[in-house]
């Protein structure tokens, strides 16, 4: 008897649970659709990323004066850097963008990984030089790359400068700037801000200005340690794919390490945003060894190295 009584009760509870569950399912599905609508703006088109990067660059060039083309020397320097970055970007097209293959240093969601695979640059990479002795480089979303005169002066040859360019290009190609912004700020902020910016028809307004300033502050604070390791990894692979010596990344990191020692940079402040440089050097050395990375056949001949160093010195020394 007990069984006969309890079964209908159990089934009633099951029915109520099913109906409640389906109602919940409706709500979940609606939320998923709403989230996908939000991502429409979050998934920025290359042109939108470009305009955002342009705004961030405007903040950068207002803080640091960029070198203007006023004579043959400055023209040669800007042309040299832009041809180098364009060459590396094309030569490294087939370098992996998979977070897992790049050492598993960053935790990208499926959507973020898809975004990186499909990232395109509206106008390619555009490099500028900041007229500052500070050792700094900034890569913005949309393809703007700014390198300080101080950092260029630290490079001893073309391959080392290429290592700087490849590392910064990695931050652009792997969407590090926007990934940080998405994590630090609610998606809704970027959604509402960009909606007003791009779809109001009133041109660039105060919200756009605020967004650019916020993004540039993120940039001035530096990328997180995982992103730095990932940029070293992609950059070293890109150097090899472009025919440069992958070891140049190690040499450049060692120069920065020496610079940090010489200039007594506050280790607390430095480590707050960057991984210990010794660990970065070791990670790159391990990568070169494990993947047996080297430049193309013939790119490390004395003639080829001399040709590169000659034009490097003509431009910068």
């Amino acid at each position: 008897m007990k069984i006969k009584v309890r079964k209908p009760r159990f089934m009633s509870v099951l029915l109520v649970a099913c109906l409640a569950g389906c109602s919940l399912l409706n709500k979940v599905a609606e939320s998923v659709n709403a989230l996908e609508e939000m991502k429409v703006v979050d998934n920025l088109e290359p042109s939108e990323q470009y305009y955002l990067g342009r705004g961030v660059s405007a903040v950068i060039v207002d803080r640091y004066k960029p070198i203007e083309i006023k004579d043959q020397r400055s023209e040669r320097q800007i042309q040299y850097l832009n041809e180098m970055s364009g060459f590396i970007e094309i030569a490294a097209k087939d370098v992996t963008r998979s977070a897992r293959k790049l050492g598993d240093y960053t935790d990208r969601s499926f959507d973020e990984q898809e975004r990186v695979y499909n990232l395109a640059l509206y106008k390619g990479i555009q490099v500028g030089v900041l007229d500052s002795d500070e050792v700094a480089a900034y890569a913005t979303p949309g393809g703007f790359l700014w390198i300080s005169r101080g950092l260029i002066n630290m490079c001893n040859n073309e391959d080392e400068l290429a290592a700087v360019v490849a590392h910064e290009t990695a931050h652009i190609i792997l969407d590090h700037g926007m990934a940080n912004y998405r994590r630090a700020h609610k998606q809704s902020i970027i959604t509402s801000t960009l909606s007003e910016t791009w779809f109001s028809g009133s041109g660039v307004g105060a919200n756009f200005g605020r967004l650019c300033v916020t993004l540039s502050e993120d940039l001035f604070n530096g990328y997180n340690p995982g992103q730095e390791f990932e940029a070293d990894n992609w950059g070293t692979r890109a150097l090899a794919a472009s025919g440069y010596a992958p070891d140049a990344m190690v040499a450049m990191l060692k120069r920065i390490e020496q610079h940090e020692k010489d200039h007594k940079v506050d280790p607390e402040a430095y480590l707050a945003h960057h991984p210990p440089i010794g660990e970065r050097i070791k990670a790159v050395q391990d990568l070169i060894k494990q993947e047996n990375l080297k430049g193309n056949t013939g790119t490390m001949t004395p003639d080829a190295i001399q040709a590169r160093n000659k034009r490097f010195e003509a431009a910068f020394k």
Partner: peptide, 8 residues
Amino acid sequence: GEQGGLLG
């Protein structure tokens, strides 16, 4: 790339 001997 060619001038810098980078294409191998």
